[in-house]
């Protein structure tokens, strides 16, 4: 089955088109819709994948993803519960990850914010490539299947520092919900610029306990072709990001 992907956009969403392209390239049917349309149609459950792409929803003016997450709480609570119980997947990239955390879809689906992505320690927006360690978790076998334990992807954000109180952090760690960590070339936790924002424990992406909801700050849709990498070689560079989208599509086509 070719999965149907709903890519939800609103004012200020800006990675929607390349994310749609990535899903299409991987073989999915894509539906890039404005939140106002989805609000009218109320049919999230008719899709297999819900994707919240990157950008600055509503300018991030009251905090990254703040208003978008409020709208999810106001309009789509039940829809999302149903969607997940039917086996749907949710992917939140960058601003999408911020929205998943602030609306309480991650780390658990209880619609209460437990963790946040706050201002980078450097105090500014940064676009740079990072090394990521793919940790062993339930999400890995789905999203990161056949990828090596150390990959590179770009990040581009001003509010990406993963932060939670110590008990929440422990819970996330103990439940194996951390999927990606910022590391150095040797795969070890390291300070800035390897950890580009000061995230606790180098956390770059987490999933829910089932592994079917994934939020990450790095942009897999920006590494679909060799030429996306800063030091690409046309024959040898392997585009890690593309593989992630292919895995998701295969999950449905072969699953």
């Amino acid at each position: 089955m070719r999965p149907k992907v709903l890519i939800l956009r609103t004012a200020g969403t800006n990675c929607d088109k390349e994310t749609e392209f990535a899903f299409r390239l991987a073989g999915a049917d894509t539906y890039l819709y404005h939140i106002n349309r989805v609000k009218e149609e109320k049919n999230i459950t008719s899709y297999q994948i819900l994707c919240l792409p990157g950008g600055f929803s509503y300018g991030d003016n009251l905090g990254a993803g703040k208003i978008f997450s409020l709208e999810i709480l106001l309009w789509f609570k039940e829809e999302i519960e149903k969607f997940l119980s039917k086996g749907g997947l949710i992917l939140g990239i960058c601003n999408g990850f911020q929205i998943l955390l602030k609306s309480g879809i991650l780390p658990h689906l209880d619609f209460r914010q437990k963790a946040t992505l706050t201002f980078n320690d450097s105090g500014r927006f940064e676009d740079r490539w990072v090394y990521l360690k793919v940790t062993s978790s339930s999400a890995v076998s789905l999203w990161f299947k056949d990828l090596p334990p150390l990959i590179t992807l770009p990040v581009a954000h001003g509010e990406g520092k993963f932060y939670a109180d110590s008990s929440t952090l422990k819970e996330i760690e103990d439940n194996n919900q951390v999927v990606l960590r910022y590391v150095d070339k040797s795969g070890k936790l390291a300070p800035y610029p390897y950890n580009p924002n000061g995230s606790l424990n180098g956390i770059a992406g987490i999933s829910d306990s089932t592994g079917r909801v994934l939020g990450l700050m790095p942009h897999p849709e920006r590494f679909l072709f060799p030429h996306h990498h800063p030091h690409w070689e046309k024959d040898t560079t392997y585009p890690f990001g593309r593989k992630i989208f292919e895995n998701v599509v295969n999950y449905f086509s072969h699953g």
């Binding site: 800006n14 990675c15 088109k17 390349e18 392209f21 990535a22 990157g54 500014r124 927006f125 940064e126 676009d127 740079r128 770009p154 581009a156 942009h219 849709e221 920006r222 679909l224 030429h227 996306h228 800063p230």
Partner: peptide, 16 residues
């Protein structure tokens, strides 16, 4: 300066 700019959005980057 360049790192403060999102120079990769739209996924079109070939030479940064």
């Amino acid at each position: 300066i360049v790192t403060e700019y999102d120079h990769e959005v739209q996924g079109a980057s070939v030479v940064k």
